[in-house]
Amino acid sequence: MFLDLQHISARYPKASAPAVNDVSLQLAAGQLGVLIGPSGSGKTTLLRAIAGLEQPQSGRILLDGTLLDGPNVRIAAEQRRIGMVFQDFALFPHLNIAANIGFGLRDMPRQQVRQRVDEMLALVGLDGAHEKYPHQLSGGQQQRVAVARALAPQPRLLLLDEPFSSLDVELRERLAHDVREILKQAHITALMVTHDQLEAFAIGDVVGVMQAGHLEQWAAPYQLYHRPTSRFVADFIGHGVFVPGALVQTDAGMMVATALGNLHDVNGVLAHAGASPDSAPRGFDVLLRSDDIVHDDDSHFKARVVRKTFRGADFLYTLKLLDGQELLALVPSHHDHAIDEWIGIRLDVSHVVTFPTV
């Protein structure tokens, strides 16, 4: 693997617990990885350890087979050939765009610097912006310049620390897709930190969820959403709730019983629980995503609308069953139901994810 973190732990002085605790992950060459998680979960500390700005207390960091950190080994940050993009852009306001991008190329001949700056501006879609100054560019354009400057010295790895957090929501989403295309075109291996799941899914080939210094899961976005391996990941990613479930024997075979009917993916339940039909626990919680609940006027299962959030193309409804159980449902926005209205719903679950009852 191109980037290989092995059991990394890092602790700040006087801290009661490690900021990063026994984290291992891998990135292949050209892959884009993203770390998400709540504030204080250790995302940025891990990024800084990779960059050489923080020293791990234990573990090994390897980049393209070279040991950067490990027992009796520590390569200085400036010798790692790792680029960084920060959330505040960190552009020099007194330098024009060409000088900003070429700032880290001062040891190269002038003609090569000009050529590299031209290449970087073309890569990020800002041809002809050489003589402009940062204040003359939009926030999104400034962030493109920050990416171009980080890529200009041809780093082996690019690290991005919440690079879009100061931009408005619409621009963040568009720029996230643009940056992914830029990095893929440049064949760059990158690791980004964000708190925004949409950004993470838009950019990442692989995404890690961190909590209290631990890496809960490191997987493709689809796997994180549909096959979370911990209750925290299931709760943190997407919109969903947990409802009681149980294995029951029916005429059609073994099924998973819930308040909204029986589900058929028993093998998925057993695999998740690491059990067999004979040994599996009879009670557990079933994860139901908002897209698992379908609005269906013909269904005999009814739920009352208790909250609604308009999201443009759809509503996110919070629904309550007769027994008090709350559910979330994404419903096309032309189905505009009133608060306290009862609507028909049914389950449409392709595979079942369960966790022990707490």
Results as ranks from 00 to 15, higher is better:
R106H: 07
F86H: 09
I75Q: 13
V117D: 14
F92A: 11
E78Y: 10
Q112N: 13
L95A: 07
D118P: 00
I82T: 10
R114W: 04
V73T: 08
L67T: 06
R114K: 15
V117L: 14
D107L: 04
D88K: 14
L67E: 11
H94K: 14
E119R: 15
F103W: 12
R81T: 00
A98Y: 13
G83H: 04
F92G: 05
N72H: 13
Q111P: 00
L105V: 01
E119T: 09
L121Q: 09
R114S: 10
Q111R: 10
A76S: 15
V85Q: 07
P93D: 06
R110V: 08
D69P: 08
F86Y: 13
V85M: 07
A77G: 08
N100F: 06
G70S: 03
H94G: 09
E119S: 09
L95K: 14
R74N: 04
V113W: 09
E78C: 03
R106P: 01
N100C: 11
R81M: 11
N100A: 04
F89T: 05
V113S: 00
R114E: 15
Q79C: 02
A77I: 02
F89V: 13
A90H: 11
L95V: 07
Q112H: 12
L67P: 02
G83N: 03
F103T: 08
V73A: 01
Q111A: 10
A90Y: 02
M108V: 06
L67C: 10
D69E: 03
F103V: 10
R74H: 10
G70F: 01
I101L: 05
A122M: 03
V113G: 03
D88M: 11
P71M: 06
R80H: 04
N96A: 09
H94C: 11
A122K: 06
Q111E: 15
H94Y: 12
R106V: 05
M84L: 11
T66L: 12
R116W: 03
A98I: 08
R116I: 03
F86V: 01
F86E: 07
A99D: 14
L68Q: 08
L91T: 13
D69H: 10
R74F: 03
I97W: 14
